[in-house]
Amino acid sequence: MLSERIFNISNQKDFNEIALEVFSFQFQHNNVYREFCQLLKRNPENVSTIKHIPFLPIEFFKKKKVISGENPTEIIFTSSGTTGATTSKHYVSDLKVYEESFLKAFELFYGNPEEIVILALLPSYLERQGSSLIYMVHSLINRSKYHESGFYLDDLDSLHKKLKELDKSGKKILLLGVSFALLDLVETYEFNLNNTTVMETGGMKGRRKEMIREELHQILSKGFGVEKIHSEYGMTELLSQAYSQGDGIFDTPPWMKILIRDPEDALSYLPKHKTGGINVIDLANFNSCSFIATQDLGKKTHNNQTEILGRFDNSDIRGCNLLIL
């Protein structure tokens, strides 16, 4: 099975071979992607490396049904957006693949969710339908063996008391929150946490003025009394997530890769330490499109991690984990 091979990738050679196989499959079975590739005169016969694979601009998910094959849709994930804005739609034909992707990646970076108290402060996501992030976090919470795990909408006082109590108990705690809600929490209450990982999952969602990541993390780090603020990088159009354990430097699971394209030439790539557009290969997304050109900016570090920097100025703010520079 393709999914089994994808989630057992262990080296670059395996990744490259499966990526080319997925490209060939999607070229044949994804009408939107095939038409895009044909415009660029790229096909499985003349594409021999992953850097020759065309990356579909993420805007296509706003106007087209981007799906590979004819399997029925199990769920449609939708992006957040301002009132009246066109949102992206991701037609997912196999939820088990999504579940395997986010669970394996979470375990890789944070361990077994059964052994973690998971607290979620995601009001802007809970207030709408179709959030892939809510689906993921809900599933992780259900796997936690601790009854304290759960969502908090706007009851910050209860969360404050629960977080302090849990942190003193010595249990392993993860607090996931959208940036504006985490700021609300630390501006209202004082913390000095020792056993809690704080992870921000997105920007201000129109609730506050945007700020650069360094400023946000500095405020949150001081407010919670933790050394580093973690981050999640995911989006509606993908089935995998990258994670940062501090300073906006992200690692990907073995079936996901980030490339940095030249902003002046979308078919060329930049060396390490040069800022450009982020292209994402998400092999778990083989039933949709695994090769996405995002509107995000980043650069590769010396050890091939990715620093997420912000967004192109002319792109709209959407429901993924980025802050304006």
Rank of each mutant, 00 (worst) to 15 (best):
A181S: 15
L239E: 04
L133T: 07
L39K: 13
D157S: 12
K272Y: 08
L40W: 01
R213D: 12
N194D: 08
Y243L: 12
N287A: 05
V186E: 12
S3V: 03
R128F: 02
T49N: 13
N8A: 10
H273N: 14
T236S: 02
K228F: 15
N287I: 03
Y110K: 09
N112Q: 06
D262F: 11
L40R: 11
H90N: 12
D265K: 13
P253S: 11
R5T: 06
L56K: 01
L220Q: 04
S10P: 02
T197H: 04
L259P: 01
I6V: 14
H160V: 03
G206S: 05
K104V: 00
R42V: 02
T236F: 05
K300W: 01
L133F: 15
R208Q: 08
G276R: 04
E307D: 00
H138T: 10
S132F: 07
T49F: 08
V97I: 15
S179L: 02
I53H: 11
E35T: 15
D247W: 02
M199Y: 05
E99V: 02
G202A: 13
K168V: 07
Y110A: 09
D265P: 03
N46L: 04
S169T: 03
V137N: 10
I9E: 11
M204E: 05
I258H: 15
G81R: 03
K209G: 13
I75N: 06
H29T: 08
K299S: 12
N71Y: 12
K51L: 15
T83H: 08
N304D: 13
V178W: 10
N192K: 15
P253H: 11
T301P: 03
N287M: 12
M256A: 11
S179P: 00
A19Q: 00
L153D: 07
G277M: 10
Y269Q: 13
I116K: 14
Y110L: 15
L182W: 09
S169M: 05
P253C: 07
Y233F: 15
I317M: 00
N46Q: 10
Y233W: 09
N11I: 04
Q295W: 05
S10Y: 06
I116H: 08
K172T: 14
C289F: 03
Q12F: 09
F151P: 01
V137E: 07
N46R: 05
N30D: 02
N30L: 01
S93G: 05
K171R: 14
L121F: 11
L309I: 15
L133Q: 09
Y135M: 08
M199H: 04
F151D: 08
F36S: 01
S158R: 10
K161S: 14
I308C: 06
S221L: 02
P54G: 12
A293H: 14
S268W: 12
S290Q: 14
K162E: 07
G203W: 05
P271R: 04
L297K: 04
S131P: 03
Y125T: 13
K172L: 10
M1H: 09
A19T: 05
K89D: 00
